[in-house]
Write a protein that binds this DNA or RNA. Sequence first.
DNA 1: CGCTCTTTTGAAGTGATTCAACCCGAGTGG
DNA 2: CCACTCGGGTTGAATCACTTCAAAAGAGCG
Lengths: 246, 246
Amino acid sequence: MQELSEASPCLALDAATPELLGDEAIERLRAIAIQHGAAEAGTRIFRAGEPFRAIYGVRIGAIKAVRHDEAGDEQVVAFHLPGEFFGLTGIHSDRYVNTAIALERTAVCALPYQRLFQVANEQPRLRRQLMRLMSGVILTEQDQYAAMAGHTADARLAFLLLDLRERLSRGGPPRERLRLPMTRAELGSSVGLAPETTSRVFQQFRRGELIEASGRNIRFLDIGGLGRLAVPLMHPGHNANRTSAA
Amino acid sequence: MQELSEASPCLALDAATPELLGDEAIERLRAIAIQHGAAEAGTRIFRAGEPFRAIYGVRIGAIKAVRHDEAGDEQVVAFHLPGEFFGLTGIHSDRYVNTAIALERTAVCALPYQRLFQVANEQPRLRRQLMRLMSGVILTEQDQYAAMAGHTADARLAFLLLDLRERLSRGGPPRERLRLPMTRAELGSSVGLAPETTSRVFQQFRRGELIEASGRNIRFLDIGGLGRLAVPLMHPGHNANRTSAA
DNA sequence: CGCTCTTTTGAAGTGATTCAACCCGAGTGG
DNA sequence: CCACTCGGGTTGAATCACTTCAAAAGAGCG
């Protein structure tokens, strides 16, 4: 389905890298990046509590970042899609705080953090990009947070679907059809809804002719309509340079 | 009530600064920091959409970061307490995305971002601390996010109260009594609850002998009990070096 | 001392969860 | 090739939690 060879987005630190970082920085990054082979669905990239060693980038596929309560049920904290980075919270704690699990056949690359910062010490522009990257993650988190707080299930899922549409179309223009890498349960969990509720809202969207959906295949019929549902929580400058955290 | 002169926490980039940064970095930071005088409750430090110029630190008082939907009602995104930094999302967007409002008489200091990064360019340890700071913000956001998703009003507020207790006792041991700088409505809004619900949960906590509360004055009677309510979403390493974002 | 904003309380309404059953499609083995 | 199984998805009915609306009591501030 998806090619395992591809212009490595692992080096696309945030948006337009080559111009922003300069050729030398790119070369240095390429040298330290460790390309991992394809991981099957369900593979854990790292577990909560493990010592922090590297920041990861998604090349192809998709990752979910989850936390477990002691009952053992998992709560999805974020999704990480191609071109995005995860594992950033480890910088602060020296340990990963989430567990990262592949949702489908997925390839990631690792940027070992010691070496990454060595390079950053010599490359001011890379430093700037790293800061922007982290700031962007904070922004994304806050958007998600605001999207959840005190809004209905429709609004949350409309927001999530539009968000995923944008991120899954990364690079190109937003796509009308796409295949979601996650289950209804995971979709719901990420915005604090039960799987049944998620399913019901999907039905409602179908009846309202907002989307077509069979299984994980989605077709967007009425972006404006979804936007109107999600609108209470949108804000300007909500677009480009999206990245996720772990 | 609170002294306006005090060892400036504006320079306390994250936890134990002097050892971590070195005297020179501290001196440089002190030189660029702009100490603002006391701002009355209700003062806006910056507004969403304004161009990003500086990162702010709270010296005394408290700040709320809010977003407005087009209906005009505000949603609290975060609180910023003494020793914490805010305005970090501006790095990514070149504009502030939230509005920062003083909750009480509050003094902040500004670290103009151009100069801050000039200093960071020459001080590797400062860079490291900045990264850690931002990583910590991401972590905090995720904690809040996880705290909200699919949990009851009791759990959310128990979590919030314990969090505030820890942050308001910054430096010293956790205090048993404290004065909350925000209203019930603001407390509730920050975790996605209506003010009435917040009030009712407070009553419930009182009846359960978990806290005493009259107005904004809180006394913690049973930390363990609160912890048990909030527990589904706690995780280890959740403590030190807290910071907030805007 | 009176005004206003905050907090509290009640009662009714609504939206999401829960529990349970059923369906569907993919994969497996007879 | 078909029956079986298993996980994910859908649907219904009952319950529960939070919100909403309304009203009154407090608290803080001029």
